[in-house]
């Protein structure tokens, strides 16, 4: 700015003009840029709220007191080093941790205000609304069609099953690749296709929320980018929570990022939430030194 001569114009004026058209150019056809990723608004309602969540495996305190809101139609990413409890937290959201006999959750996870751990809550019903996609693509050893149709079938879906299968596969960006071989084994698909099939299977039951536990860690880079692009499309309709050990992935796909770290005390590794903010802030101006050290690769 040193060569600015004789000007008093306030160039750090951030206010937008009343009408941009006043100053509008005649030279080129223009379109106003839409808001890009990484700058979420607060308009999205909170759909899931974790309050003081502690996780234990037997006597082992795995996660210490995590509180954070998850807003609908956004992608929320959990990142952090191994053993920081991010997978434990995501699996506690749809009560998949119930399947581990020694696992125990304290605190509250509310879904539309209802505590998912209240007595009488049926984990099966919870999982029909909060679906899950796993680290390793895990299609059933059945046909592509049956993989997608299984969820709707057990929840007594009464509509047109063919149509639902097509719609789910289309949303998962897989339809064009498999429409001619729906009765083939799902194992005939590539890893990336299998994972998209698993996503189609998860959305076939029309969940509100999709939990993704490192969904691309077993895939090659191109398949990974496809899954990421798919997540961007899916968040128009679903709330997505993703655990990833790939920081760049969190940066690319998420609106908000939670950074978890791990404390080692008396040989016990206990995970805790360090920082939760919109993704652009986490990756451009994190508030905690620990976050900074982790995302810049200086720790972890």
């Amino acid at each position: 700015m040193a060569d600015r001569i004789g000007t008093t114009v306030d160039s750090v004026d951030h206010t937008r003009p009343e009408t941009l058209e006043d100053a509008s150019p005649s030279l080129a056809a223009t379109r106003s840029p839409r808001v890009t990723g990484g700058t979420p608004s607060d308009e999205h309602a909170v759909i899931l709220e974790l309050s003081d969540v502690n996780a234990y495996y037997g006597d082992f305190h795995a996660v210490d007191s995590v509180s954070l809101p998850i807003r609908e139609k956004e992608v929320t990413a959990f990142i952090g080093p191994s053993g920081c409890g991010k997978s434990t937290v995501i699996r506690s959201i749809n009560r998949m941790n119930d399947l581990i006999p020694t696992a125990r959750i304290e605190g509250a996870i509310t879904y539309h205000g209802v505590d998912l751990y209240a007595p009488g809550v049926d984990p099966v019903e919870v999982r029909r609304r909060i679906g899950m996609v796993f680290q390793k693509p895990n299609p059933f050893p059945k046909s592509i069609y049956d993989n997608v149709a299984f969820g709707p079938k057990i929840s007594k879906y009464s509509g047109d099953m063919d149509e639902l299968v097509e719609r789910s596969l289309t949303r998962a960006a897989l339809w064009d690749e498999v429409k001619d071989k729906l009765s083939d084994s799902a194992y005939a698909l590539s890893g990336g296709q299998q994972q998209r099939l698993c996503i189609a299977r998860a959305i076939a039951t029309s969940p509100d929320v999709l939990l993704m536990d490192e969904p691309a860690s077993a895939l090659d880079p191109i398949a990974t980018l496809r899954i990421e692009e798919l997540m961007y499309e899916l968040k128009q309709e679903y709330t997505i929570v993703i655990v990833t050990h790939n920081m760049q992935q969190a940066a690319r796909v998420s609106d908000r990022t939670a950074f978890f770290s791990v404390d080692v005390k008396e040989g016990q590794r206990t995970g805790r939430l360090v920082e939760f903010a919109d993704t652009a802030t986490i990756f451009t101006n994190p508030q905690h030194d620990e976050t900074e050290d982790y995302i810049t690769g200086r720790f972890g």
């Binding site: 399947l99 999982r127 679906g131 796993f134 299609p139 299984f150 969820g151 299977r201 998860a202 039951t205």
Partner: peptide, 8 residues
């Protein structure tokens, strides 16, 4: 997991 994940 896949089965439980879709609410079985």
């Amino acid at each position: 997991d896949a089965g439980y994940g879709v609410g079985a």
